[in-house]
Simulated assay, not measured.
Amino acid sequence: MKLQVAIDLLSTKDALTLLEKVAEHVDIIELGTPLIKQEGLAVVTAVKAAYPNKIVFADMKTMDAGALEADMAFKAGADLVSVLAAAGDSTISGAVDAAKKHNKGIVADVIGVLDKATRVKQLKALGVHSVELHAGLDEQAQAGYSISKLLEAGRGADIPFAVAGGVNLDRITEVEDAGASVAVAGAAIYGAADPGAAAKALRAKIKNLG
């Protein structure tokens, strides 16, 4: 399993400052949607230039113009780009076509999809690189939220999947045991008093590193 840091900060400077502390402990650097909206795709270029050997994931959450938006992000330096699983099949197929052109990958984010199991099967047929079983910040803030629902959906997935939404030191082993190929940690890293130590501790809990 790989460790992915989700950077939900709002400036390129802050993202690079965080990465100075955590990059050595993570496999994938995710540039969050708010960060890309604030800074544009220039943040993708800057991070890829600073960390050329890391997988850089542009969390675009594309809902339309799949081929165009994916192409833009790949040209900026992204290795992976996200589309929303709720998007139309033509949007997802367009993004997948762009990924093939660049020899890169599309991650389908199932945030907001109610029947995740069915959609995951459809996404596999559409040729996505992987799926992200994701509970957003608003969902996590609701009473009764549990990461267990995401893990349950993952156990039936016949495609590489990431888990995002409450991954922390207490839950990362459970995420790996569910078969995830990627554990995504956001606030557990960037919100820690010592982000570097937090990322290192999370990585140490992974039994089979990707």
Rank of each mutant, 00 (worst) to 15 (best):
R119C: 11
M63F: 07
A157C: 12
I92L: 09
L150F: 00
E30F: 06
I172M: 10
L80E: 12
E69D: 15
G165D: 00
T62K: 08
D170S: 15
V56E: 04
D64F: 09
A99L: 07
A85M: 06
E174M: 11
A117T: 15
A73S: 08
E152C: 10
R203S: 08
A6W: 04
M60P: 04
D79C: 07
A157Y: 01
D71A: 12
Q4F: 04
V47H: 04
P34M: 13
G191K: 08
G112K: 01
D14E: 15
Q122L: 14
P160Y: 09
D115C: 09
D138P: 00
L151W: 04
A135V: 01
A183Y: 00
A183H: 03
G32Y: 03
V5D: 04
F161T: 05
A42K: 15
A185L: 07
Q142T: 14
D109N: 01
A197P: 00
G105M: 09
D71I: 03
A98L: 12
L123E: 02
A204Y: 05
V5T: 11
G136Q: 10
A76V: 00
I111T: 00
G156S: 07
S93Q: 15
R171V: 13
D138H: 12
D177F: 04
A49P: 02
L133A: 01
V120P: 02
M60K: 02
A50N: 01
V26W: 02
I172Q: 03
D115P: 00
Y145T: 13
V113R: 05
V167Y: 03
I36W: 02
V182Y: 00
A46H: 06
L137S: 14
P52G: 06
E30G: 07
S130R: 14
T118R: 14
I7C: 08
V81L: 06
Q122Y: 08
A42N: 14
V96R: 02
I159S: 01
E139M: 09
Y51E: 12
D59C: 06
E174I: 10
A188P: 00
A46S: 13
D109W: 00
L169H: 06
N103R: 14
A164Q: 01
T91Y: 06
A23T: 06
L35S: 09
A183T: 03
L68T: 13
P34W: 01
T173A: 15
G144M: 14
G105C: 10
D71F: 02
D8G: 04
D64V: 13
P52T: 09
E132C: 14
L123D: 07
L202M: 10
E132P: 01
E152N: 12
L150Q: 05
G94Y: 04
K101R: 11
A95Q: 04
Q122K: 14
I172P: 01
P52V: 11
G40H: 13
F57Y: 13
K116F: 00
M1E: 08
I147M: 11
K61R: 11
A76F: 02
I172R: 07
A192M: 08
